[in-house]
Amino acid sequence: MLADFAAKFTKEEIPFKKLGNKFFLEDKNLEKIKLKQKEKYFGIFLGEEKEDTFIPSFVFLEWLAERSEEKVFVKDIGEIDFLYGKTLRSRHIDHVEGETKIGFLKLVQNIHGENLGYGKIIGDFTKTEQVIKPKLDRGLFLKREKKLKREEEKA
């Protein structure tokens, strides 16, 4: 599950440990300093399993972006659109690294090289209008925070 997702971006093996439905990167140094109780969060959070699907964390996407060539870099206007869950158009793209074939997954970076999420190639970068369909974007933090606030107010 996690390995299948990671293989789309890197050949590197990802040693992980699972805590509940969450995956974390193995880390021998952190193992040495942890408490004897069961932790809930451990170093680099890789993602979680939800209904048999692996959902990567944003820390993992950042980590992958440091190792992968499968990246598309978007201009400012594309950055905002992507964070609002909109499909990227060719005019949003600054440049592409790695594979450009339809169906491939790409890490979506802004012009500063920061990871905004990832998406799937749905069109030809030189021809078509719509090129990257968002799969996961950092706008999710807004939704999560709104939800948490609602829950807190209810409580």
Partner: peptide, 15 residues
């Protein structure tokens, strides 16, 4: 957890 993920923490163990 949400804040640790947003800020990209890599060196925290939380209980």
């Amino acid at each position: 957890e949400n804040n640790m993920e947003r800020l990209g923490l890599r060196n925290c163990i939380a209980y």
